[in-house]
Amino acid sequence: MTTQVQMSAEDKALAYPSPLKEFWQGFSYNKGAVMGLVFLAVVVVAALFAPWVAPYNPIDQYRDFMLTPPSWADGGTAKFLLGTDEIGRDMLSRLIYGARLSLLIGLSAVLSSLIPGIILGLLAAFYPKVLGPLIMRVMDVMMALPSLLLAIAIVAILGPSMLNTIIAISVVSLPGYVRLVRASAMTELNRDYVTAARVAGAGTLRLMFVTVLPNCMAPLIVHATMSFSSAILDAAALGFLGMGVQPPSAEWGAMLSSARDYIERAWWVVSWPGLTILLSVLAINLIGDGLRDALDPKLKRAA
């Protein structure tokens, strides 16, 4: 899909496999990426169909079963597979519903920083005289503040809630996108095909979004995947500091934060949310690695 423009300029006599197939070959070569994809698919399915998959409502309190251990441990019951939390809510159901929140936060944060990031990055690349440096200075300022601190300050201003978590995370990850888009657009701008399009009379908007942008997509997709995982981590960190999604919603970081009180008594309330965060983020990062290999071998260099 992304290579079509270049292909038309090259020798068509060479039989290329379809881009999608080529992509899949590259991707599936990486076993880790496939494993990550499978795990993520399971999480996504569980999240989408949470009301049918989860054994209980995540906010129903079974007050006769407070802090029940997982079913296989001493004192556990088959009713609650992974045990219950401090007021008798089913851990498994909370984790499944939590997946909804974490994925939603991650996805919304990525989209709401990707789109302004693309626009600002392209503007910075196309207007290198005044607007470009101005945008880049502002981004530098934002980059100088440690992202977690900035996110905390933003949440402190807006008040803790899911929407504000998304806003904070997307603001914090904006500079990364702007820099990336600008850098790759600047390289593309010097290419012949852009000059050709310009000479052919393409307007600035067309140049930006139709000519240049598709050729910057490969690194952007990889970066978006990576920032999806870091958005989940950041949301969990905010939740852990008590500044994220508010109760009784089941968000993984917030679950971990309230579970901290029971770390001595009930290992399961601390272990499951942490493990779930770790595995989901790992899965997404594995997919990111696979995408990188598949989309552009040269990109392997970027960390």
Binding site: G32, S229, L233, A236, A237, F240, G253, L256, R260, I263, V270, G274, I277, L278, V281, L282, I284, N285, L286, D289
Partner: peptide
């Protein structure tokens, strides 16, 4: 590579708690 990717995906507040425990 597997370990480093795991480390990269680690929620460090959780890691800290586990290390203390």
């Amino acid at each position: 590579m597997g370990l480093s990717l795991t480390g990269f995906s680690m929620p460090i507040f959780w890691l800290g708690l586990l290390l203390i425990m």
